[in-house]
């Protein structure tokens, strides 16, 4: 059995998960009342930055259906969805 190698896609997927977790962590910290206004503003900025990255990652791909050819290229594929 051959050893599996990590595809590039796995790395970027981890990055998204990581960013999402950090974002959720920041929200958690903001929920604390004792956080001062200065710090709250700082956290907010950081959080918005991460949220922006997550959003653009999710919108990176557009809907498309294609067929993989023998030479490794793809061509648009028509399939009835009756």
């Amino acid at each position: 059995m051959t050893k599996k190698t990590k595809a590039e896609t796995v790395d970027s997927d981890e990055r998204f998960e990581d960013q999402l977790e950090r974002l959720e962590d920041i929200v958690g910290r903001l929920e604390d009342d004792s956080v001062g206004l200065e710090q709250a503003l700082d956290l907010f900025e950081q959080g918005m930055g991460l949220a922006g990255k997550c959003r653009s990652r999710l919108e990176r791909v557009e809907q498309r259906v294609s067929r993989l050819l023998e030479d490794g290229t793809t061509e648009e594929m028509e399939v009835e969805t009756s």
Partner: peptide
């Protein structure tokens, strides 16, 4: 689910900051 989590966190950021202000 992933989209939901990201959107949710984004919204909560706004609410929490407004609360602090």
């Amino acid at each position: 689910e992933s989209q939901g989590r990201a959107e949710d966190a984004r919204a909560r950021l706004g609410w929490e900051l407004r609360r602090h202000l």
